[in-house]
Nucleic acid binder design. Structure first.
Lengths: 339, 339
DNA sequence: TTCGAGGCGTCAATATGTGACGCTACCAGC
DNA sequence: GCTGGTAGCGTCACATATTGACGCCTCGAA
């Protein structure tokens, strides 16, 4: 590799090598990493670089340890091309959605870009009418439950260990167990479902993949021990084989249903999927929808949530189940009304 | 302002001033912007800077126009400090959610950061077991409809004009209208609802705020005419006043319901909200939930989607409505079964 | 106490960045 | 088809910044 010396390039590389707050990097480590990428410079030069950069950037230097350690302030971000308006707005919109879907600890990782977006938007509206904050709003389509909360450290450790193939030392409290136990986990995957985040991992030298909900971790520590890989494992196939109680069959079935006028209008704009075919409501007020769908729990819930606005014609098993549950409700509500 | 000359600082600023692809910036404009921020340099120096930068970065120069125009390649992004593993994974996770919620055109704005995340993750897994792509998965909790599609340009124009307070010239096709009409719109806000994105705007010199679904725009162009602001308008109050057919009352009501054992476990981990109080199922198999909630459509849909797993005790009007719809369904399914 | 790693000040050699010029290419208005 | 203005580009000489070398100093572990 040719010996590069351009100070701009070097500084830029440095800025990328310096981690954000919880992380820290020693000056000597930086020197090595620079060397790896073709910049051979004296330690002295590097020290000068760092001093210069820390004047212009929110870079903190921990001088208590001997090879000084450097890091960026928490939540700092600076992207190169600067953000444009629509990127910033998209981030802000996305954030509104995600807060009801992802745990705060996960969302914290996006603090940097979000700060930047806010700064960008603020700078535009400096002399404006009203603020951008009052101009963008999101109306959720679904009732959201509060995502299970867990520690940001746990998220950091788990993601890092998963991708770097390291084992995790964890203190985990099983459901309905008061006392936590210590485990050595070999992380295989992460699944997020119904606002709960699970780590899929094997324990010790067993081959069964177990689910560990992140909010039941008391603590987690990434080890340097390499994890024990599982041949041919993939989250995809784990789920397909019923790991989460859902048998996702590949084959599709034909959903056929009468739909109300309101639902017709809505499905016109945002169809169920590409295979959907609609017939406009006739004078009875009912239209027709057919679509090829998978036999999934979420779809059934959706049908149920629509109540009287949809009347399923096929498949028969969904008709039966909808009727069964409706009957059960009618029976119970009528009975309890009398008392 | 003191005249700054540091070439590193100047280059960094330049990299921020150069927009991403659809945008373009002329060399002379750059010179002015630099001057605004205290860097007074010759045009020649700037030209040298740009040539240098375009060797190291994917910067494109359009030489067909006379003051040459510069831009970054589409989808390029480079953040300082570089991404860490959990930021990258969070982005990838978020993307999985958002694709079913936001139109592709909106999500396109995040192509830059996402590319970066992929690059980061790829670099980690270069020599690993399996790829990160097979390790993170998201199981959606709700059936998602296909977001209404619209043009990326429309999104760019609308967000830009909204925040810069410019009027928009648009060709818009009303619902059920074949022929589009031309409008001069004064953008007041953006609302995203049920996978449809609406621009709230006034037309000409009327004061009524109208809704324009972005997917019905044939074209849109940001003008330089300043928009006509509306005193005291905010999206928040527009919605609260029933702009989207939802009267969001501020007051809460008490929801009280019997819940099945499965629902109890789920609500334990991801409660409805902070006010929720649960009582464990007794030997009849039913537990009790109470919570302070708003009278919202989404919550009602949620109750309905749960079918027989929840039995509402209060408020009475929800009991009535649930019973009414259940009865309607039973009546219809039983009648249609006989034919 | 010693020892060594690493921070920091200084200096001279060298590399680099800068403005000033002048030439050229392109475009627009006569 | 001029002509004038604008901006790109090559070159030069000068100013300035960057670098490695060296030496001293501090800190912490043995």
């Amino acid at each position: 590799m040719p010996r590069k010396t351009d100070p701009l390039q070097r500084s830029l590389l440095l800025l990328q090598l310096i981690p954000r707050h919880p992380g820290m990097i020693a000056t000597t480590t930086l020197q090595e990493k620079l060397k790896d990428r073709g910049f051979e410079v004296t330690l002295r030069t590097l020290q000068r670089d760092m001093n210069g950069l820390s004047m212009q950037f929110p870079i903190f230097c921990d001088e208590s340890e001997r090879p000084h350690r450097w890091c960026f302030d928490k939540g700092y971000s600076h992207s190169l091309p600067g953000m444009d308006t629509n990127e910033a707005l998209t981030l802000v919109l996305a954030k509104q959605y995600l807060t009801s879907l992802l745990p705060a600890a996960v969302l914290d990782s996006l603090a940097g870009p979000l700060n930047e977006a806010h700064k960008h938007l603020d700078s535009i509206q400096a002399n404006g009418h009203g603020s951008w904050q009052s101009k963008v709003r999101l109306l959720p389509a679904h009732q959201s439950l509060v995502p299970a909360r867990f520690n940001a450290d746990v998220w950091h450790v788990v993601t890092d260990a998963l991708l770097h193939h390291h084992a995790i030392e964890a203190r985990y409290r099983k459901r309905n167990n008061e006392e936590p136990d210590d485990y050595l986990l070999h992380p295989q995957g992460i699944v997020h479902r119904h606002s709960v985040t699970y780590l899929l991992a094997t324990v010790k030298n067993y081959d069964d993949v177990l689910q560990f909900a992140l909010h039941r971790f008391e603590s987690a520590r990434e080890t340097v021990t390499p994890f024990r890989p599982l041949a041919n494992f993939s989250v995809e196939s784990y789920i397909r084989n019923g790991g989460f109680g859902l048998l996702q069959s590949e084959e599709t079935i034909t959903l056929k249903a009468l739909i109300s006028r309101e639902l017709f209008v809505r499905l016109q704009e945002t169809p169920l999927n590409e295979s959907q075919v609609l017939t406009a409501p006739d004078d009875t007020g009912w239209g027709l929808m057919t679509a090829q769908v998978r036999d999934e729990q979420t779809l059934f819930w959706w049908l149920q949530s629509l109540g009287g606005a949809i009347r399923v014609l096929a498949p028969q098993q969904w008709r039966d189940e909808l009727l069964r549950q409706a009957k059960e409700l009618v029976g119970w509500y009528e009975a309890s009304e009398k008392t």
